[in-house]
Amino acid sequence: MPAIVEVEELDKTYEGDFKALSSVSLEIEEGEILALLGPNGAGKTTLISTICGISIPTSGRISVSGHDVVTDWRAARRLIGLVPQEINLEPFEFVGNTVRFSRGLFGKAPDEAFIDQILTDLSLIDKKGSRIAQLSGGMKRRVLIAKALAHEPRVLFLDEPTAGVDVELRRDMWALVERLRSEGVTIILTTHYIEEAEAIADRIGIIRSGEILLVEEKNKLIKRLGRKTLTVELKEPLTQLPDALSDYDLQLSEGGNALIYAYDAGAERTGITRLLSSLQSAGLVLADLQTNESSLEDIFVDLVQEDAQ
């Protein structure tokens, strides 16, 4: 897959010497959904703002579909749509007008049928003649998305699109993202909700203190960093681990009726077969077996903490 957005060695230092981004390099592939995960203040919004031309890079290069965002900004910006984190909307404006305004701003000829289509897709069509001030918070967020899509962008940035949004709207949003991807739109979303990244992203980038810790395919990431645990339930509880099992990294559960074995699912040898035969040799009778996979959330917390230490 060719890269549609290329970020090379990007630095951003704000006034007062606050370094928001330091040598960030990132390649976003055409047609993918990339989720940027990171704690508050990690630099997610700064990264997006710099790509979109709202923030001036201190050094480094960004290009969108081969167009440099500084020297060839006009061509680069035409391809980008941005849904900001905060609900920034003119309260007295009408929904239809504000979407039309966005389309014009990005240099596209008026196309009322297209605007109606976007509003229909976002269940906003019956609000076309309403003032923005009359809409609910969720509706306003949809208006922001409609505005960002009004000029048919090839790359869409969603900055925390589902923060403070109810479950139904979140599901709608995910469905919309899926549909846009099927139309070939590249989507970059930042989120706090790891389940969101897990549900819709192809690749995940983790950003902390202005640095990209890693960017990897979601499934590989889970596999690579994922720790699995095997829980062995015993017929008879134990008071302590038998000496015969001291070679294994085993934990005895509270109450003593289960053994927990942690292993690396991606490893050549997991050691499960050997463990099971050792259990039998030790004369233990098993009641049940279950395995658990660590979620992206566990991985994320581990990574961010590990790095902080």
Partner: peptide, 9 residues
């Protein structure tokens, strides 16, 4: 809302 004007071509 200025962000939109600044990010436009």
């Amino acid at each position: 809302t200025i962000f939109e004007v600044l990010s436009a071509p």
